[in-house]
Nucleic acid binder design. Structure first.
Lengths: 130, 130
DNA sequence: GCACTACTGAAAATGGTTGTCGTTAGCAGT
DNA sequence: ACTGCTAACGACAACCATTTTCAGTAGTGC
């Protein structure tokens, strides 16, 4: 019954890497980043850490159109993302009007227990000018 | 140079099936549906038809969190979806306030050439009561 | 009918992700 | 510190949706 979450070098490494990055990265990229930094962590473990951190709300997942999941350490509250399709640079945004619209629309059609996904994908300032 | 799109039994079968269904279905489901209906079409061909129809805007793709793509014949204009997470029943919705919000938010942060994804996922009337 | 080539589809390959399982190492409790 | 329990690790295999291959098939224009 004592589901104690243990602190390990690997978990710390993954968490630390995500903290110092502000873009969305794939599990494989994170794995490579860690290896490059000398913090060798098994790919399987990277996936497990990310899954655990996702469940506890520490990271957000974004499923790209190429079928690859991207991860990022985000603020804990409800928010959405404005993502650069070229470099992955991400801005967290809140969207009160969207929340209202989603709730009302769902109600109108008799839907309950609703969640929603809202992402804006574009080119950031730097990528557009280069 | 004569890139004529040929009309085949298989393409017709896939198109017809999608027309008479109003929910999002996976490629594998569509393949099974066709087989069951007696219209045997290779899985590879199903994928190819769906890709072609997606490109020409005849069908919309929805990438679920389980990493499976779902397809549906939709109206051609810009719209979003209200999807039942249990049965896949889908309502097309328009979202003028969301469009405005997305455009303004992107501008504020210097993003250009933006698109967005907006989906509402919930339980439809029938699934909620059963 | 004929030629041209897009289309088909079975089988194999791809590639991200998850399961397996023997080993390693936190974290009590002593 | 020492020990036992068991969560966590990680190399590897398995999984599974999707894509590629390639030889055979069948629309389409002439």
């Amino acid at each position: 019954m004592s589901q104690t979450r243990r602190r390990t070098r690997q978990r710390d490494a993954v968490a630390a890497l995500l903290q110092q990055r502000e873009d969305f990265r794939t599990a494989q990229q994170i794995h490579a980043d860690l290896r490059e930094a000398g913090d060798d962590v098994g790919l399987t473990t990277v996936y497990r850490c990310l899954a655990a951190m996702t469940e506890s709300g520490e990271v957000d997942i974004l499923l790209g159109q190429d079928g690859e999941a991207r991860y990022r350490a985000c603020s804990t509250g409800h928010h959405h993302h404005l993502v650069c399709r070229s470099c992955g640079f991400t801005v967290e945004v809140t969207a009160a009007p969207v929340e209202r619209w989603a709730r009302r629309t769902a109600e109108e059609h008799g839907f309950s227990d609703v969640t929603h996904t809202v992402e804006i994908i574009g080119l950031c300032d730097t990528c557009a000018t280069s």
